[in-house]
Design a protein around this nucleic acid. Structure first.
Length: 705
RNA sequence: GGGCCCGUAGCUCAGUGGUUAGAGCAGGGGACUCAUAAUCCCUUGGUCGUGUGUUCGAAUCACACCGGGCCUACCA
């Protein structure tokens, strides 16, 4: 049963900065939030999902200047790109605003007046480096110079990457502005500060006792900030600055981190203007402090203090509602490492969409998100295996293997005896819902996949394909079995609808119409027509992953290719029309199209060597593996497990000269560590695994190039 | 240097005091052929990082150590 009374829930994701495109790291947050929102809507609650572009600040100003156009033009372009990326991943905001909006300017003013009224604003001189040519004050990262500690050259203004020292930009030796190359000078300017220490008691109380924060976050704040007086928060920047000028302080602008969270309010205000209601319906609180609605902020762990100290302080000063929950997630790693452009793992949303189905990433993230602040690893091998097994093999397969039998007849008129399968999965609905509510999507996915396993086992036990061949007398039984299967499929589609909206829609198209409510998981459908089956999700092919990584690597400058081209001069004449080529079957190439283009540098990373097999033995327990020992010359030996059992006799392999990938990362296999890979050909058109051998005379250790 | 998190089967993880520690993937054997090399059944595999303690009883609690990660380092 759903919650008895609809809740009013306002949900936000952090505002993406207008200085860059959305990548897979960003998407952890937006997909996570979108799943939560779709879940709450499916449960019948009144939910508004808001976000906006974060547009202000020095970085935008500088970039616009460099591109020779206005900040507004830059921001508008990036907004269009962001919206397209989000739409591609089915992240469905109810409203997407901008911090550079009238509403935001007005609301910043209102919060500012509240801070002034409570006497929480003070003015102070700040000494900072200034670029006299560009005419701007310089943030630390816009200054470079020589480290005062270790004398390393070309270090940023805040810390040295060589020796790890931290210092003030003014301490740099020979500082240079990265904007103009000019020598910066120290100037002092007036800044405005919010004295949040005045709200120390409130913040200590709210962070520790309100239940809005994970205890780990609360503990972190208590240890790092609340144990001592809170420093004043610098909220203004002197002109020139791209942002809002502070009304009662001409020449001063609100710092980007002041107006960014106000963007949540502005987005709400704009949504209300379009859909009815008032800002107070969502952000006010009654005299007893009870908020008008729930407010859930989803953020990354890098911006915790803005959302748990400054933002609540601003809301408190303005008498607005405080966040119900601040849900913090970790960062994304790819294959266990930070996203890296050179490895091709710095993957933009757009690039992903060019190669793969967004539903697969949504599901993978859901299966990995458990509500904690730990980092989330996108392991591409696991990604491929998991989404193919779960979405294609288990869930979609339920419909794929049974729907066509119901196309002529539709669902059975009464729900057949299924041995309690549907009821069992229905009974798990509340446990799944509780997991979604807690942000433990991984648990929800586990429960759903167990139900999918039971459904597939049911089909195997009932053997509907035999009923289909058994003739008219088995038609009723066939309809019953298929009706059970399709109902179990649709039930799963309801549970998965927050994660896989497209699958849910396709399930509705197939049978029963659009899925509108969580309740639909509780009652099987009967007597309805079943549409012609269309495939629901395509498998992820490893080649597509490779292409994605290749497309994500920075374009290499097209350099010394000329060198390789000249090699043809001294070689044998090129056979422009190789004889007999027309007689080779096209099957292998058609079955496995060429991988994405790679550069010579990519190829060079793979170190192929000639090697001699010095030992080969059966691995008794293995189906496909032989254990080989190869010599790379001298006394360099490698153990390699090769998947060639059944195609090669170990005895005849010993002594053969082959080609191995010599710098492949060692792989722990069940029977031992494999330290390389023997190169062999295989493919469609012919059974077998064909080892490669060099011309005679090649010595172990020689490199292939 | 300080703080926090993690360490359970080859891999990813579930399990937070109570009977012989579980799942998925990978591996092995078999079945099936409806389905996108999908599915089903059976099966191999773990001194639960190490040690000491608390307890009738510890993967689970405490302490120490080892290993990995994240955040900080009197700037936010």
């Amino acid at each position: 049963m759903p919650d008895p009374r609809p809740r009013r829930i306002l949900v936000t994701s952090a505002l993406p900065y207008a200085n860059g495109h959305i990548h897979l790291g960003h998407l952890v947050e937006y997909i996570q939030t979108d799943i939560f929102v779709r879940f709450q809507k499916l449960r019948g609650h009144a939910v508004v999902y808001l976000c906006a572009d974060d547009t202000h600040g020095t970085a935008i100003m500088i970039r616009a200047r460099a591109e020779g156009r206005s900040e507004q033009e830059l921001v508008a372009d990036m907004r269009a790109a962001h919206l397209a990326d989000f739409a591609g991943f089915q992240v469905a905001f109810d409203h997407y605003g901008s911090t550079d909006s009238d509403a935001n300017r007005r609301l910043c003013g209102e919060l500012w007046r509240a801070l002034r009224a409570k006497d929480l604003v003070v003015s102070r001189e700040v000494r900072q480096l200034y670029d006299p040519e560009a005419g701007v004050f310089l943030a630390d990262r816009f200054v470079k110079g020589t480290c005062p500690k270790c004398r390393a050259a070309d270090q940023y203004g805040d810390s040295c990457e060589q020796c790890g020292a931290t210092y003030a930009p003014a301490e740099l030796i020979d500082p240079v502005s990265t904007l103009s190359g000019a020598v910066p000078e120290v100037r002092s300017a007036e800044h405005l500060f919010v004295t949040i220490e005045a709200l120390h008691g409130f913040l200590a109380d709210w962070t520790q006792a309100s239940g809005a924060l994970d205890p780990r976050i609360a503990n972190y704040l208590a240890g790092h900030f609340l144990g001592e007086p809170l420093r004043d928060w610098d909220v203004s920047r002197p002109a020139p600055y791209f942002g809002f000028e502070i009304p009662d302080a001409p020449g001063h602008f609100w710092y980007v981190w002041f107006d960014a969270p106000v963007g949540y309010l502005a987005a709400t205000d704009e949504w209300c203007a379009a859909h009815g209601g008032r800002l107070d319906d969502w952000w006010s609180r009654d005299p007893a402090g009870r908020p008008a609605a729930e407010i859930h902020h989803f953020i990354g762990k890098d911006i915790v203090y803005f959302h748990t100290l400054f933002w609540p302080a601003m809301l408190e000063a303005a008498g607005l509602a405080l966040p119900t929950k601040v849900r913090v997630h970790g960062f994304l790693t790819v294959n266990g490492q930070k996203m890296s452009k050179s490895r091709g793992t710095f993957i933009l949303a757009r690039t992903y969409l060019d190669h793969l189905d967004p539903a697969m990433l949504r599901y993978y993230y859901a299966a990995k998100l458990s509500g904690g602040i730990d980092d989330l690893d996108l392991n591409l091998e696991e990604f491929t295996a998991k989404v193919n097994a779960d979405i294609v093999g288990k869930v979609a397969n339920l419909a794929s293997r049974t729907a066509r039998w119901l196309e002529p007849t539709g669902l059975a008129a009464t729900y057949p005896d299924d041995g309690g399968l549907f009821a069992a999965a229905a009974a798990e609905g509340e446990a799944i819902a509780a997991a979604y509510e807690a942000g433990d999507f991984a648990r929800a996915m586990r429960i759903v996949m167990q139900a999918a396993d039971r459904a597939n086992a049911y089909i195997d036990a009932e053997q509907p394909w035999k009923l289909a061949k058994a003739g008219p007398e088995a038609a009723g039984r066939l309809q019953a079995v298929a009706s059970v299967a399709l109902n179990l499929f649709r039930q799963l589609a309801v549970y998965l609808a927050p994660v896989l909206p497209r699958l849910a829609q396709q399930a509705g198209d197939l049978v029963g119409g659009p899925i509108r409510s969580w309740d639909e998981s509780a009652t099987p459908l009967v007597g309805l027509p079943v549409a012609a089956f269309v495939p629901l999700a395509r498998r992820v092919e490893p080649a597509a992953i490779e292409a994605l990584l290749a497309a994500s690597r920075p374009a290499e400058p097209s350099e010394p290719i000329s060198k390789t081209r000249t090699t043809t001069q001294g070689g044998p004449p090129m056979t422009d029309t190789p004889q007999g080529s027309a007689t080779d079957p096209a099957t292998p190439l058609e079955a496995e199209p060429l991988a994405a283009e790679c550069t010579i540098d990519d190829f060079t990373k793979v170190d192929l060597r000639v090697a001699r097999i010095v030992a080969a033995e059966e691995v008794a327990e293995a189906k496909k593996l032989l254990k080989l020992t190869v010599s790379l010359g001298g006394d360099v030996r490698r153990t390699v497990f090769a998947g060639i059992k059944g195609f090669h006799d170990p005895a005849t392999l010993v002594g053969r000269v082959v080609v191995v990938v010599a710098n492949l990362a060692p792989r722990q296999m069940k029977f031992g560590l494999s330290e390389g890979m023997v190169v062999a050909a295989s493919g469609a058109g012919a059974e077998g695994v064909f080892l490669l051998s060099p011309d005679s005379g090649a010595l172990p250790g020689m490199r292939l190039r």
